[in-house]
Amino acid sequence: MSNVDVIEILKKSDALLEGHFLLSSGKHSNRYIQCAKVLRFPEYAEQVLSTVVEQIKDLDIDLVVGPAMGGVVVSYELGRQLGKEAVFTERKDNTMELRRGFEVKPGAKIIIAEDVVTTGKSTKETKRVLEELGGEVIGVACIADRTSEDIGMPIYSAIKLDIQVFDADECPLCKEGKEKLVKPGSRQFKELGM
Rank of each mutant, 00 (worst) to 15 (best):
E18A: 11
G66S: 06
H20M: 06
I61D: 02
E125R: 02
E136F: 04
R80N: 07
G134H: 12
D115N: 04
S25A: 00
E46D: 15
V165M: 09
I143T: 07
K27H: 15
Y76G: 04
H20I: 11
A168V: 12
K190A: 14
L78S: 04
T89D: 01
K175P: 06
Y76D: 08
N30T: 10
R91H: 15
E43K: 15
H20N: 10
V104S: 11
D167H: 09
E176R: 06
I7L: 13
N94H: 14
R31E: 13
Q55L: 05
I159V: 08
K109R: 14
S148H: 08
A86M: 02
G152N: 02
E125F: 06
K178Y: 10
D150R: 02
S157W: 05
K127T: 12
I111N: 05
G101K: 05
I159Q: 03
F88Y: 15
E179K: 09
A113I: 07
K180C: 06
M69K: 15
E191S: 14
A113M: 08
T123K: 00
V137P: 02
L173Q: 05
G19P: 01
G120N: 01
P106S: 11
D167K: 12
T147C: 06
L181H: 11
I110D: 00
V182I: 13
S2F: 10
D115Y: 00
M153H: 01
E90L: 12
L82Y: 06
C171D: 11
I56T: 06
